[in-house]
Simulated scan of single mutants.
Amino acid sequence: MSPTRDRPLALTMGDPAGIGLDISLDAWVNRQTWRTPPFVFIGDPAALDTRARALGHTVAIRETDCNGAVVAFNDALPVLPVACASPVTPGMPDSANAGAITGAIETAVRLTMQGSASAIITNPIAKSVLYDAGFRFPGHTEFLADLGERLTGEPLLPVMMLAGPKLMAVPVTIHIPLKDVPEQLTADLIYRTCVITVRDLKNRFGLASPRVAVAGLNPHAGENGALGLEDDAIIRPVIERLKTEGVDITGPLPADTMFHDRARATYDVAICMYHDQALIPAKALGFDDSVNVTLGLPFIRTSPDHGTAFSLAGKGIARADSLLAALRMAQQLADNAERGKN
């Protein structure tokens, strides 16, 4: 057995009022049919048990640490307890539980950095709920980077990637208003994003020489300056620099012709200039089976590519496809990283 298979994946509960509990239970209940990789659920065992009963599942919940999780997984759902401060009602988020939500993430990072867990999978959170409790990060990605920096003492640039069977796409700028993108889009940020993406595609995805396609910012990649100067002044020089460093990279390309079947066959990853430029095609091509992967961290992190879906919570209609894909990808990335060390 691979060393990573001796350690569980660390699955955080996300917002317990959302569908994170539902899909986590589905992943365990169907573990044999779906061949779910062993995980330890980090969250409130009472809330999980209550949700299981509401959904009609018979689930044995076993409180444990990472050491006993893989063995326990066959017969019981392993849970590392992080208790909620307030009772959980499906579809009704409560900022009183923000501490448990972020505490589960912090626990997962600590365990993975210690080597007790092989990778992190995060269930969806609702940032507005956390903001009411003083959460100061734009999202999951930035919070994870801060935790990594605190544990390593090294500055980190988290890079968000949506990875599906038909497309891997990376936005250079992430959770900022569209009007702020041109100001935030620097040559240094584009360069570092590309370097981190190529490095992790090699080390974690096992691609020996990743092919990178870079989207322009403006329509038609600026049309030689007629539709904007950023493509030629900022993006193109970065691409030329990376070519001299041996990266297989093309662009800037018009984004409206980058994502059809023939175009996607020419590259492994698309580097896009802003959030929706990357996520719209990624989700359109693989909404149920795409995975949110954070590159540039000292640990592996994946997540379903959907939100909390409060309106679906506790009703037995949420689909676990994306979570299952996230669990499988996290396990594969952990295995690849382990092989790379040997």
Rank of each mutant, 00 (worst) to 15 (best):
residue 58 T to P: 00
residue 293 V to A: 06
residue 193 T to Y: 07
residue 180 D to P: 03
residue 120 I to N: 01
residue 27 A to H: 02
residue 247 V to I: 07
residue 229 L to D: 15
residue 19 I to Q: 00
residue 121 I to H: 01
residue 116 S to R: 15
residue 10 A to P: 00
residue 192 R to T: 12
residue 209 S to Y: 10
residue 69 A to W: 00
residue 275 H to C: 06
residue 30 N to R: 15
residue 240 E to T: 06
residue 277 Q to W: 08
residue 171 P to Y: 11
residue 106 E to K: 07
residue 318 A to R: 05
residue 334 A to W: 01
residue 6 D to K: 11
residue 223 E to K: 13
residue 277 Q to H: 13
residue 77 L to M: 10
residue 267 Y to W: 08
residue 46 A to L: 12
residue 66 C to Q: 07
residue 333 L to P: 00
residue 272 C to H: 00
residue 214 V to K: 00
residue 325 A to N: 06
residue 57 H to F: 15
residue 225 G to L: 14
residue 134 G to C: 09
residue 176 I to T: 10
residue 44 D to C: 06
residue 36 T to A: 05
residue 48 L to A: 03
residue 19 I to P: 00
residue 25 L to D: 01
residue 323 L to H: 10
residue 237 P to Y: 11
residue 309 A to K: 12
residue 54 A to S: 09
residue 299 F to M: 03
residue 106 E to F: 01
residue 219 P to M: 13
residue 185 L to C: 04
residue 126 A to Q: 14
residue 234 I to W: 08
residue 110 R to H: 06
residue 334 A to F: 07
residue 266 T to D: 14
residue 143 F to M: 08
residue 308 T to Q: 08
residue 163 A to W: 04
residue 125 I to Y: 02
residue 86 S to A: 11
residue 134 G to L: 04
residue 328 R to H: 14
residue 224 N to G: 13
residue 264 R to N: 09
residue 18 G to P: 10
residue 119 A to W: 02
residue 161 M to I: 06
residue 331 Q to D: 13
residue 39 F to E: 00
residue 294 T to E: 08
residue 327 L to H: 03
residue 300 I to Q: 04
residue 99 G to D: 13
residue 187 A to S: 15
residue 258 M to D: 01
residue 39 F to M: 01
residue 215 A to W: 03
residue 282 A to I: 03
residue 124 P to M: 10
residue 142 E to N: 08
residue 233 A to H: 14
residue 244 T to L: 15
residue 1 M to W: 12
residue 144 L to S: 05
residue 200 D to A: 09
residue 298 P to Q: 11
residue 215 A to M: 03
residue 204 R to C: 10
